[in-house]
Amino acid sequence: MNETAHIEHRDYATAKLGMWLFLFTEILLFGGMFLVYAEYRQLNTADFHEAGREMNVFLGAANTVILLTSSLTMALAISAIKKGMKIRSLLFQAATVLLGLGFLVNKYFEWSDHIRKGLYPDSPVLLAMSHGKILFFGLYYVMTGIHALHVIIGLSVIVFMFALTLRGNISDTDYVKLENTGLFWHIVDIIWIYLFPLFYLIL
């Protein structure tokens, strides 16, 4: 390898390794919350099952389908840019953003429905319920809330990547930024894959 070939220094493997290490901290962040959920559920099984019936399985399933599909469009956006198909990649990135927004709209309807019923942290309705149900709804709001925050962050980054792709900053010779964005988006999807049965499917 001669010197001139490395004027523009890019370290592809390290960029990806850095992203994976960050994702591991995300796994540990949510892992801690899953641990709290597992322990409280073990101690309040009956209350958790009763509180779980308040959840709208249909909306939860719809959001699962939306996120899984957005993961597909994200993966396709990356393979399109690798093949140099810029327009196709942009379209798939846009589709990912639209699906992510759809997820948040569903979440909005879901939460406003709970709040209308008086089921929000520290509400008089909730405080009158048993200890286990208070814990269930507390965990529900914290875990799906932090997850929704990740969706918002992920969407913002994808919009940023869309602009970079449009300007040619991300191309078939340099796409690691888009790949790392994809990795983040997929980990958000994986977390939802676990949240869905834990909160919506305890019937």
Binding site: S71, A75, G182, D189, I190, P197
Partner: peptide, 14 residues
């Protein structure tokens, strides 16, 4: 089932 789904996402999409 969630773990199988997560593995599929990790293995192929990621």
């Amino acid at each position: 089932i969630a773990s199988v789904k997560a593995s599929l996402v990790l293995w192929f999409f990621m």
